[in-house]
Structures are given as structure tokens and as C-alpha cells.
Computed example of a mutant assay.
Amino acid sequence: MSESALKLEVIDQVAWLTINRPQALNAVNGELHTSLSRVFIDLGERRDIKAIVLTGAGKAFCAGGDIEWMRDAVRNPEQFEIVTWEAKRIVYAMLDCEIPIVGRINGDAVGLGATLALLCDITVMNDTARIGDPHVKVGLNAADGGGFLWPQMIGYGRARELLLTGDLLSAKEAVQLGAIGHALPENEIDAKVDTIVGKLRHGATKAIRWTKAGYTIPLRQLAHGHMDAGTAYECLTNLTTDHAEAIEAFAAKRKPTFTGQ
């Protein structure tokens, strides 16, 4: 995976996963999505790894869906069915993985990027970055996990507003609301991540793993109750005129004109 859209390196019992499309602000394309749907299953089986660090190359953590990938899904809706199946695997696998996942959120975490950040067990975010789920702004249902994760992380009151408007939070706001653990200047992120990883590496591995297995039970139950319906709705919104309009507007760098169709 070293030259792919998702880089994996294991050093001193720590798996470093880097979303590796910096030229596209780490926007998710087909290759990356497929890799994300499999990697946490593969890592979760290993007994030689005590922590996973998930981060992004370049300026962004993950800027959401790649525009050309979304265009392909509009042209080929049957392919989008595979995408939604993979989306479920990503959420289930990150929650099922007993190895603690540390999110090194080096830049903006948007859409699926926000979901990945929320699925991490411990998060350290660049204090100039933003996070949020703007699926509705591209005419899609928020179905890749955000629909159940945001209310659990920050409460229904604010989560409903954010999901319905697609507005983004600053890192400071995200910490205040409990979505993110730490917001630090860029030059302090690595030291904080290293400190956290050190505690996990030198801790009681089985106790740590099984503590995660316990506290994720409610989230796993919610995920299995939400994802099938959510991804079905996303398949429907993928077919709408509004979604196609949003994609073309984004590509043309103009505001979309939604008609409700």
C-alpha cells in the first residue's frame, strides 16, 4: 500500500495510516474508499499492533468526496451501490477494530473525512482546521455514518442543525462540543500524538482493547440500526436532479440552483 491512496507503515507496534491524495486535499476516490473499507479489518486481526494513527498527507485530513468520483456515481448508479456497501464496511470495521485509533487531524475533515475523525477513539486536531458533514450541500443524504455519529458526539440539538445545513465547525467549536478531543497549533500536534501513542504502546494491551470493545457496543448497535436505511436513502439522493446540479456547480465553481427534484 506504500504508493497507493492510503499509505500504511508499521513502526514500533504502531500502524501509521496516511490518506495519500494531497493534490486533491485527500478527497475520497474509488481506490481510497475501497482501501478504507478493508484496512481496519486487516489491521484488527493483528496482535502485534497496539495503536493505529490515522492522518492525511499535505494540508487536509480529508476533504470529502472527489468530484469526478461523484460524477461517475451519477452516470453509473449501480456502481454507487458498491460504494454504499463499502461505506458500511468502513464504519463497522472502525468500530469493530479493538485496537485504539488515534486521529491526527492535520487539516479540514469534511463529509466522510468528518466521519473518519469521529470514528477515531482519540483525536488531535490542527486548531486552524474545520470539521463537518455538508452532504446536503451536494444534494446527498448524510449516510456514511454522520447521521448517527454527530448526535451521539455532540447531542441532538446542535447535530440536527449541522446535518441539515451542512455548516462546518472550527476546531475550537468541535472541542467545546465534544466532537474532537484536542485542538492544538500545527507545531504541537505531533508531540501530543506521540504522548498518546506512548501511553497506548506501554499500557495493558488487552485491557485497552477490551475497554474499547465495551464502550463501542452502543455505537455498533446504532450503526447497524442506521446504516442500511441511511445508505438506501443515499442511493436515492444520488439519482436526484439536485445532486447532479450540485456536482456540476461545484466543478464550475458556482452556487448550485436547487429545485427540490
Rank of each mutant, 00 (worst) to 15 (best):
V136L: 10
G157E: 14
D96E: 09
K59H: 08
R158Q: 10
I217M: 14
I101L: 15
K192S: 10
T165G: 13
T231R: 00
R104N: 11
G178R: 08
C235F: 09
G214W: 15
G58T: 05
K255D: 13
G65S: 06
L43G: 04
F40G: 05
G203H: 06
K7S: 09
S170M: 05
N26A: 00
N106C: 08
V102Y: 01
V124A: 06
K206I: 13
V91P: 06
D133T: 04
I105D: 00
D48P: 10
G146Q: 00
V138E: 00
P22T: 06
W69A: 05
W150I: 07
I99L: 07
L163S: 03
A57V: 06
V39R: 03
T241P: 09
R75T: 12
I208D: 00
I90L: 08
R38Q: 15
H182A: 09
C62G: 00
I67P: 09
I247L: 09
T241S: 11
I19A: 00
G56L: 06
V138W: 02
Y215I: 08
L112S: 08
I49N: 03
G178C: 09
A246E: 01
K137M: 10
S170N: 07
I99R: 02
A114T: 02
C62A: 07
A179K: 01
I247A: 05
G198H: 13
L118R: 01
V197A: 06
E173Q: 15
E68S: 13
V10Y: 07
K88N: 14
L116A: 04
K88H: 11
T128F: 12
N126Y: 03
